[in-house]
């Protein structure tokens, strides 16, 4: 039963463990029959809900459990315990029926036929999902447009660059216009123009069709540009679930000040001012957010030697790095 209302994704108290085998070097080959293994906790007590129409980023270092979570949500793996519901139904139990309503884009694996042009894979997917002609033509035209596939989709896939292939893969995976889409590292290794096109398409689909997106990613721009909300996993546990602004407020509440100087000089000794970088004619500081109105700082910035200055928010990647650093220190 796929509910009409209710959250797109509901995860409650999910646990997942794996056997992680160690290979031992230099032993006889019989040792491979009885290998030692450790139980690795991939997901621990993970709970969250995603409503329809949201775009959520799933962040975390390698091995944090991102991919495992995506696989559980798409019915590829099943949790050891806990509840998982996508569109109101269990993805492991009802995998086949649910598969028609969800889309999956794995960045590392393409669904494209290597020796054929991408259009062949599109037609294959059309037949596979039973998409009718009208809908197919509409979606095809849409993707060719929003992903700039015009020069690409009739060429042999093996001749395309990674970015071009990812765009075609994206289109092929979503031709059936699913309600919820899960992506696992879709822009990794992809050239800049193609990743822009991918994000545009995703954003547009969300606006136009109300598609819900959950993106497991490393790439900062995926988060910055697309996601309204971020869920962060670390060692299998959910350590943050909220808006991007929230992360920034927690750990990013500092500013970067860059001052361009006429002559070289020593850094001003103001409490709270952290010199990050200095070169001939230029200095970069870090200050806590509340210091932007500090009088001593203003005096320095308006002094004669400073020809220009800028005060900006920190890079989101730096924020995340701070976030992770605090976590490791705490653990």
């Amino acid at each position: 039963m796929i509910e009409k209302d209710g959250p797109a994704v509901r995860v409650e108290d999910v646990h997942k463990e794996f056997k992680s085998y160690e290979t031992r070097h230099g032993e006889g080959f019989l040792s491979s029959i009885r290998r030692r293994y450790k139980m690795k906790k991939a997901l621990v007590e993970v709970s969250f809900e995603i409503n329809r129409g949201e775009i959520v980023a799933l962040l975390g270092k390698n091995g944090s459990g991102k991919s495992t979570l995506i696989k559980i949500l798409t019915g590829v793996l099943h949790p050891d315990s806990g509840t998982v519901e996508v569109l109101g139904t269990d993805p492991w139990r009802d995998r086949e029926t649910l598969a028609r309503r969800i889309g999956v884009v794995f960045g590392a694996h393409e669904q494209l036929y290597w020796n054929l042009p991408a259009i062949d894979t599109f037609e294959f997917r059309k037949a596979l999902y039973g998409v009718d002609n009208k809908q197919y033509n509409k979606m095809l035209k849409y993707f060719i447009d929003v992903l700039e596939l015009k020069e690409i989709y009739k060429r042999q896939v093996r001749e395309l660059s990674l970015g071009e292939r990812m765009k075609c893969n994206f289109a092929a995976s979503l031709l059936h216009n699913p309600e919820v889409v899960f992506l696992d590292e879709p822009t990794i290794g992809v050239d800049l123009p193609s990743s822009f096109a991918l994000r545009d398409a995703l954003f547009d689909m969300n606006k136009k069709f109300g598609t819900t997106f959950l993106i497991a990613t490393h790439v900062i721009d995926d988060v910055k540009i697309l996601a309204q909300r971020a869920i962060i996993l670390d060692k299998g546990k959910k350590i943050y679930d909220g808006s991007k602004a929230g992360i920034t407020k927690m750990f990013g509440d500092h500013r970067e000040v860059v001052a361009y100087l006429k002559h070289g000089m020593d850094a001003p000794q103001i409490k709270g001012l952290n010199l990050v970088e200095s070169a001939d004619g230029y200095m970069k500081f870090e200050i806590p957010g509340k210091m932007i109105k500090n009088r001593d700082l203003s005096a320095f910035l308006t002094s004669e030697n400073v020809v220009d200055y800028s005060i900006s928010e920190p890079e989101f990647s730096d924020v995340l790095r701070q976030f992770y650093k605090k976590r490791t220190r705490r653990s």
Binding site: T23, G26, E27, F29, S32
Partner: peptide, 14 residues
Amino acid sequence: ISAKDMLSFRADFV
């Protein structure tokens, strides 16, 4: 070759 390759080498040999 390295010890690891030795393992697969032996398996191949057998």
